[in-house]
Amino acid sequence: MADSPIMSSYAYAIMLLLPLSAAMVIFQSNPYQALVMRGILGAIAALIYAMMGGGDVALTEALVGTMLAITLYVVAVRSSLVMRLGVLEGEGAKNNLQWQPMLDYLRAMLKRYQLRLELVPYSDTQSLHQALAAKEVHGVCLMDRTGPNAEEVAPRILVRVRRLAEIFATELPEAIADAKLYRDDALVTLPHSPTLTEEHS
């Protein structure tokens, strides 16, 4: 094989690129960036297959292995790595100082877990609770007024998914929002971690 014209000196140089790009895919934590790397790996693999004489294999790698697989995977990642948060319609439009900082904090916090925040608006509180019970959303955000005519509001987030509730309990300070785990029978309060509570007290 080594003295055949196909396995020339440059063939070994091209083949070294394959494990290099494969390592780039493995050590990438962001799923979207890993899929771009997978495209690079597929292009180099197609080159090697064509170089070795397997034209049909190269064509299949480029069309199915790279184009179809990446497109399907990116659609799957986009629809699964998302947290749907139910909110009341027009909540952000109200004169509410805590709304935008809370959303920014939530987005930054979820981004560390490669999650995306998607807001789902509902018209009233009852439909918000129904959506949470019917598993349409992963959590709901409620704005409770501290008093009858009070200016300040206390954002309260009810989360249905246990893992999300754990993340919220450890990383979301009470000063920004109060997070609780939602269950069908009762609300369970998760204890806030002492370090974060101390920081914001």
């Binding site: 899929l35 771009v36 495209g39 292009a43 197609a46 064509a50 190269a58 064509l59 480029a62 069309l63 790279t66 184009m67 990446i70 497109t71 990116v74 659609v75 986009r78």
Partner: peptide
């Protein structure tokens, strides 16, 4: 591969 391969890039960039 040259003509059809870039379609993957277009789809990926759009999403």
């Amino acid at each position: 591969i040259l003509s059809v391969g870039n379609a993957a890039l277009m789809l990926l960039a759009h999403i």
